[in-house]
């Protein structure tokens, strides 16, 4: 029996199920590796911005407490549950690792559906395309409407509303991207890759733009908050996402290509017939 037959004849249910399992583990593994990179970046570049923002917040709180004291009001200082040191080290590590590993797993599940259903048969291309659409749908577009904010930007009383709006924006963006991808597949029967992607992309933009226009704006940046700090914080937040999605897209694809090459014995597009005993 030749190994190549595996591709020609449909894989058995069991083989397929095990394949999804393999992909899922691989996705979480690549996500974990991505998490290490994201954490390193966040630790070096993101944390100083968080610290600056907290320093700003403390200065504001002190000024307020002083003003209140003059009017005879005693502000109660909130107890610190987790020290800043822990938040900036193990706390950050936990959050980033869980986030990246979870996205790695979800990425793998989407890949297991997309692979073989797209025009491209190269897992590296499929993986990179998924990562590009992923970062746009999950982070870039929701963040254009509701950007990442450092501590001291944001009114604690509106956290419920802000969370709701952010997730609505993300959900619409994600569903819009799925719809656009399906549309692209349909259009691909009639038009070339360029035209169908262009039309589907325009539909996605129309959906998210309309939603963005309908949802209320949130602007809770204190008037005296340093603009450069806000900018740096948001750029670092974007940087973390780029590192994570790039690692997922490139890492997962390369890993899968490597595994397939070993398993099915083709190299650089040439099918090598391997005789299994």
């Amino acid at each position: 029996m030749t190994v190549a037959i595996f591709w020609v004849s449909p894989a058995t249910d069991m083989e397929n199920r095990m394949m999804v399992r393999t992909l899922l583990i691989r996705g979480m593994l690549v996500g974990f590796l991505a998490g290490i990179l994201v954490f390193s970046f966040a630790k070096v570049f993101g944390e100083p911005q968080v610290d600056h923002a907290i320093a700003f917040e403390s200065a504001m709180d002190e000024a307020k407490a002083k003003a209140d004291l003059e009017r005879g009001i005693h502000d109660v200082e909130e107890p610190e549950l987790v020290s800043r040191k822990l938040q900036a080290s193990y706390g950050l590590l936990t959050g980033v690792m869980v986030y990246s590993t979870a996205f790695g797993g979800l990425f793998a599940l989407v890949f297991s559906y997309a692979n073989g259903r797209m025009k491209s048969t190269d897992p590296r291309v499929v993986s990179v395309l998924l990562a590009i659409t992923g970062i746009i749908a999950v982070y870039v577009v929701p963040s254009i409407k509701y950007p990442a904010n450092p501590p001291s930007v944001g009114n604690p009383d509106t956290i419920g509303m802000r969370t709701e709006l952010y997730f609505i924006m993300m959900l619409v963006s994600l569903l819009g991207m799925i719809a656009a991808t399906m549309l692209q597949g349909r259009l691909r029967r009639q038009y070339n890759a360029w035209t169908s992607t262009y039309l589907a992309g325009a539909c996605y933009i129309l959906i998210v733009f309309t939603t963005g226009e309908l949802l209320p704006a949130v602007n809770e940046v204190p008037s005296n908050f340093p603009a450069d700090l806000l900018w740096n914080f948001r750029i670092d937040s974007l940087g973390m996402q780029i590192i994570m999605w790039a690692t997922l897209g490139l890492g997962f694809g390369a890993f899968t290509e490597y595994a397939n090459r070993n398993r099915f014995g083709y190299r650089n597009g040439a099918n090598i017939q391997l005789n299994a005993h």
Binding site: A42, G46, E47, V50, L81, V82, L86, Q87, A88, G91, L92, T94, G95, V96, V98, Y99, Y139, P142, S143, Y146, P147, A148, N149, P150, P151, G154, P156, I159, R162, T163, Y166, F233, D236, S237, M240, Q241
Partner: peptide, 15 residues
Amino acid sequence: EWVHDSRHLLGFPCH
């Protein structure tokens, strides 16, 4: 409080 910094940096609304 534990995941606080990552929540901010990952773009989620916090406080």
